[in-house]
């Protein structure tokens, strides 16, 4: 069943026409990768869904409900979580406070913390530290944990492996894989191998439009066509 559906979405940054009619779907039990070179509108697509950069035209439906025109916090309340590029920690808040802020209700805090610490034990060790003092990998885990404790029904994940050491990338990949067992994900990822490993389907974006789509089964990171799309 379709969980998220974008139809003819046009989004502008000031005068710049970034998204030029994006159509995209995410089902309720799949991981979908959004591929493309830098600056083609992938992050803007996520920001449009979240209503951080509201679309000028088009429709974005989540569980059949129109998101365009809502406030960002209402989109989050509807069950969409964001694990943004560069992680966006609340640096001066502690690890635990970052998690608390992400739990939707006061009553759910204990349960949320437990879930986060079970998934990433290192976060429990660092619970009292300022999030800004964590390493890049630990911050990425905290960012993912914030998405997990939000009781979300869809996660928007933007460049989770960016700037991380290879060993850490593996850990993050595993964390996302285990998360995907319980929650659908729309993923932006530059590392094609990782994206194909995690995703069931992919879309390729260029100049603000979807130019290709397909199943990831049988597609490898060496795929000629995909490499051509993604090469600068």
């Amino acid at each position: 069943m379709t969980l998220l559906e974008l139809e003819g979405v046009h989004t502008y940054y000031g005068e710049s026409h970034i998204l030029q009619g994006v159509d995209l779907e995410v089902g309720d039990d799949e991981v979908v990768a959004l591929l493309g070179r830098n600056g083609v509108g992938k992050t803007t697509t996520l920001r449009s869904i979240l209503q951080l950069t509201p679309p000028a035209e088009g429709s974005i439906r989540f569980k059949g409900e129109e998101l365009v025109g809502k406030d960002t916090y209402e989109v989050a309340e509807a069950g969409i979580g964001w694990i943004p590029e560069e992680r966006r920690m609340f640096n001066r808040l502690s690890v635990e406070e970052n998690l608390r802020a992400a739990v939707p209700t006061a009553a759910g805090v204990a349960e949320g913390l437990e879930l986060a610490y079970d998934t990433f034990p290192i976060l429990e060790e660092r619970a009292g530290q300022r999030a800004g003092d964590l390493s890049g990998g630990q911050q990425q885990m905290l960012a993912i944990a914030r998405g997990l404790v939000g009781q979300n029904e869809l996660l928007l994940v933007d460049e989770p492996s960016e700037g991380l050491a290879p060993k850490i990338v593996t850990d993050v990949g595993e964390a996302l894989l285990s998360a995907s067992a319980s929650v659908p994900i729309l993923l932006i990822e530059q590392k094609l191998g990782l994206a194909l490993d995690l995703a069931d389907r992919y879309y390729v974006m260029d100049h603000g439009e979807i130019i290709d789509r397909g199943e990831t089964a049988g597609v490898t990171a060496d795929d000629e066509q995909l490499r051509r799309y993604l090469s600068a």
């Binding site: 951080l52 406030d71 916090y73 989050a76 309340e77 964001w82 943004p84 609340f90 914030r146 939000g150």
Partner: peptide, 8 residues
């Protein structure tokens, strides 16, 4: 922005 995206 991040606070809003967490539902605040």
């Amino acid at each position: 922005e991040m606070a809003k995206a967490l539902g605040i």
